[in-house]
Amino acid sequence: MKKIILLALVFIFATAMTCSAHFVMMYTPETILANGGKITVKSVFGHPFAASVTLDMAKPNAFFVVNKGKKTDLLGTLKPITWQSRENSARAWETEYQVKGMGDYIFCLDPVPYFDQTEDKYIQQFTKIIVNNGGLPTDWDAKVGFKTEIVPLDKPYALWTGNVFRGVVLSKGKPVPYAAIEVEYLNHAPNMELNKFAEKAAVQAPHDVFVTMTIKANANGEFTFGIPKAGWWGFAAISSGPDKKLNGKELEQDAVIWIQAQDM
């Protein structure tokens, strides 16, 4: 009997782990620009490695960009789009932004908590990507003030394949010791014109543990990840945020950051 209960528990945990790999993806083709220009940023809620089910994203609570310490509200610039994954299509968002001036542009998304019926809980992933114009480092290592966020220790746009990416997981501005972090590779290239993931996968995972990799931060809330392949990698610190309940249900507040690595 005990064995059966144990097996059931293991099964529940395994299922929960598989389900929890939801990721808010923010994407623009190039994170390092030479001379500015108009860029498009897409925000999609789904599963980056498998490009499986995409989830409807409500209009976010906040969407803004930080450059040279100045925060600019971009919520009004968001346009709804329909994003197609390999299994379905769902509501996503895009914005066009004219990059003028050098430095780091931190695009920040504070989404409305998403109610996941399977897991019977809310998920809210505070997400950011950093685009640089001209190389001048200005804001990449700054906090943007989310309830929970990953602050990079390496420039997310200046990484060779094989470099490490390091970050600090923060909750209300304070490090989260031993935070659990999920890491996923953007395995199906996004098509910016058709708003869909490519059918073809870049890599095959030998096991599900490589689809959503789980790593831990150290006692200071810092984590390190060696980048094995060029492209986009997403990092989600799970339940690192301070709020745990919403409408009487469990609330999972995650901190997400995306990086782009390039081959030498």
Binding site: L33, A34, N35, G36, G37, Q98, V99, K100, G101, M102, G103, N133, G134, G135, L136
Partner: peptide, 18 residues
Amino acid sequence: FFACWDNGDGTISCEGGY
């Protein structure tokens, strides 16, 4: 580091930094 951008109003801006 040096970058320039078109302001779209007939002017160009440039910026330099280290």
